[in-house]
Computed example of a mutant assay.
Amino acid sequence: MNVKSLAVVAALAVTPALSGCVIVAADTDTDVRVTTPASSRFESIYGAQFDERGFSARLNSNGCTNKENVEARVDRSGPRPKIAVVRLKPDNCRAFMREGVWLTWSLEELGLSKEQVVEVQNSFMPW
Rank of each mutant, 00 (worst) to 15 (best):
residue 61 S to I: 06
residue 79 P to D: 12
residue 113 S to K: 03
residue 25 A to H: 10
residue 78 G to M: 00
residue 69 N to F: 00
residue 74 V to W: 05
residue 26 A to Q: 13
residue 127 W to R: 10
residue 126 P to N: 13
residue 95 A to I: 02
residue 41 R to A: 13
residue 125 M to W: 03
residue 73 R to I: 03
residue 6 L to H: 11
residue 92 N to L: 05
residue 108 E to W: 00
residue 97 M to S: 13
residue 42 F to S: 11
residue 35 T to W: 01
residue 71 E to Q: 08
residue 56 S to H: 07
residue 102 W to K: 01
residue 99 E to S: 10
residue 69 N to Y: 03
residue 105 W to G: 10
residue 118 V to Y: 06
residue 5 S to Q: 13
residue 9 V to A: 05
residue 75 D to T: 05
residue 127 W to C: 13
residue 39 S to H: 10
residue 71 E to D: 05
residue 90 P to T: 03
residue 30 T to R: 11
residue 51 D to T: 03
residue 125 M to D: 12
residue 84 A to L: 02
residue 106 S to V: 08
residue 50 F to R: 08
residue 108 E to H: 02
residue 107 L to Q: 14
residue 52 E to L: 01
residue 124 F to T: 08
residue 91 D to N: 01
residue 1 M to A: 09
residue 29 D to E: 15
residue 34 V to G: 12
residue 103 L to S: 15
residue 67 K to A: 05
residue 67 K to P: 08
residue 58 R to K: 07
residue 109 E to Y: 04
residue 120 V to R: 14
residue 104 T to D: 04
residue 46 Y to F: 05
residue 60 N to Q: 12
residue 40 S to V: 05
residue 85 V to M: 06
residue 7 A to L: 08
residue 1 M to N: 10
residue 83 I to V: 15
residue 76 R to K: 04
residue 66 N to H: 03
residue 109 E to K: 04
residue 72 A to W: 04
residue 21 C to K: 12
residue 18 L to K: 04
residue 60 N to R: 11
residue 48 A to Y: 03
residue 127 W to G: 14
residue 60 N to G: 12
residue 78 G to W: 00
residue 79 P to G: 14
residue 57 A to I: 10
residue 66 N to Y: 00
residue 22 V to C: 09
residue 33 R to G: 04
residue 8 V to W: 05
residue 90 P to S: 07
residue 107 L to F: 09
residue 79 P to W: 00
residue 60 N to F: 08
residue 62 N to V: 08
residue 54 G to L: 03
residue 83 I to P: 09
residue 124 F to Y: 08
residue 74 V to C: 06
residue 127 W to L: 11
residue 119 E to D: 14
residue 61 S to F: 02
residue 13 A to P: 14
residue 123 S to N: 11
residue 115 E to G: 14
residue 33 R to F: 01
residue 79 P to V: 07
residue 121 Q to P: 08
residue 119 E to H: 09
residue 44 S to A: 10
residue 60 N to Y: 08
residue 100 G to Q: 06
residue 126 P to V: 10
residue 101 V to T: 10
residue 47 G to P: 14
residue 45 I to P: 15
residue 13 A to N: 14
residue 31 D to S: 05
residue 80 R to W: 00
residue 94 R to F: 00
residue 84 A to S: 15
residue 26 A to L: 13
residue 71 E to R: 02
residue 77 S to F: 00
residue 86 V to S: 09
residue 58 R to W: 01
residue 47 G to Y: 03
residue 101 V to C: 06
residue 23 I to Y: 15
residue 83 I to D: 09
residue 12 L to I: 05
residue 77 S to P: 11
residue 48 A to C: 04
residue 89 K to L: 05
residue 34 V to R: 12
residue 37 P to A: 09
residue 72 A to C: 12
residue 40 S to H: 04
residue 83 I to F: 02
residue 19 S to F: 10
residue 108 E to V: 02
residue 107 L to Y: 10
residue 123 S to D: 11
residue 65 T to S: 15
residue 111 G to K: 02
residue 105 W to F: 01
residue 87 R to D: 09
residue 49 Q to S: 09
residue 122 N to K: 08
residue 26 A to V: 06
residue 110 L to K: 02
residue 108 E to Y: 05
residue 50 F to Q: 04
residue 104 T to G: 09
residue 25 A to S: 13
residue 116 Q to W: 01
residue 25 A to P: 13
residue 122 N to Y: 01
residue 116 Q to F: 00
residue 24 V to A: 14
residue 12 L to D: 10
residue 29 D to L: 06
residue 65 T to L: 05
residue 39 S to F: 01
residue 27 D to M: 08
residue 85 V to P: 09
residue 85 V to N: 12
residue 28 T to Y: 05
residue 120 V to Y: 09
residue 93 C to S: 15
